[in-house]
Design a binder for these strands. Structure first.
Length: 268
DNA sequence: ATGGTAGGACGCCTA
């Protein structure tokens, strides 16, 4: 059976509700994980999603900042809303969903951006980002009652040289510093996670999922970064059918600075 | 070398 899951940092779910609706109607993923919803739980537009077939919604939001939500066409069960670094930030939500013969555990993450200065001694936001990654080590692909796991979200790190427009020019820019890229790759591998985007698209090929708002000519200059990720446990990776990065969404009216990533599976 | 844009909530933080 086909099964698909998408991730998208939406940068305000209320402002961009029409864009999310368009995406769901055109691409119909079984599950969509949103980050940066910037929406208190009691104001989340659940009804709008139910009206277009996404009847199952779990949210972990707060006023003003952060916030994640997971929408699905089929039943999902809340597994956990985990708090990281005892900050009270809404940056994680996990659910289980049935897919073929499996129960999948789906983690939805919004990792702290980390500020501008890549020095934990003088920048508390960068310290927070590193501490958050340290806590993420306990989120393992083989953990839990589910028989397979998926981890998606805005991880705010571009780990490979081809995940940024210029490796050399971004080595000291937060999101691509060696301490971040090495930590992320280490926690991914040790946690038993497979980078599905890179399983489908070879590491020689550049992939970006984010382009700054601060460039009018984002498409021509193409100074992007791959900050959004789709990981899975080993047992799911052989069933991956495709990965699609919806670059065109960056050109939609009043866009998010991130675009959706869709992973499709063929499951038994 | 710097400043450039965007969102939430309404002076300023975060990305």
């Amino acid at each position: 059976m086909p099964f698909s899951i998408a991730t998208w940092n939406i940068n305000s779910v209320r402002l961009r509700l029409p864009l999310v609706e368009r995406f769901l109607l055109e691409h119909a993923p079984d599950v969509l994980c949103l980050q940066e919803t910037k929406c208190p739980n009691d104001q989340f537009p659940t009804k709008a999603f139910r009206a277009i077939g996404y009847e199952h919604v779990e949210i972990n939001g707060q006023k003003g900042y952060h916030g994640v939500a997971t929408l699905a066409r089929r039943p999902i069960r809340l597994a956990e809303k985990r708090e990281f670094c005892a900050m009270g930030d809404t940056r994680h939500l996990s659910v289980t969903v049935n897919a073929g013969s499996r129960d999948l555990l789906v983690h939805n993450f919004y990792v702290p951006a980390g500020g501008d200065e890549p020095d934990p001694a003088i920048n508390p936001k960068f310290r927070h980002k590193l501490d958050f990654l340290d806590e993420m080590r306990s989120v393992r692909a083989d953990q839990g009652e589910a028989s397979a796991s998926v981890l998606v979200g805005d991880l705010n790190i571009a780990p490979l040289e081809t995940d940024v427009w210029s490796h050399k020019q971004l080595l000291k820019v937060v999101s691509h510093t060696p301490v971040e890229t090495e930590t992320l790759e280490d926690l991914r591998v040790r946690g038993g996670w497979v980078d599905l985007m890179r399983r489908h698209i070879p590491p020689e090929e550049h992939i970006y999922t984010w382009w700054s708002y601060r460039a009018k000519d984002w498409d021509d200059s193409d100074r992007g970064r791959r900050l959004d990720h789709v990981w899975s446990s080993d047992n799911l990776a052989p069933h991956l059918a495709s990965v699609e990065v919806l670059r065109e969404a960056r050109g939609w009216d009043r866009p998010s600075d991130h675009v959706p990533v869709i992973a499709r599976f063929d499951l038994d």
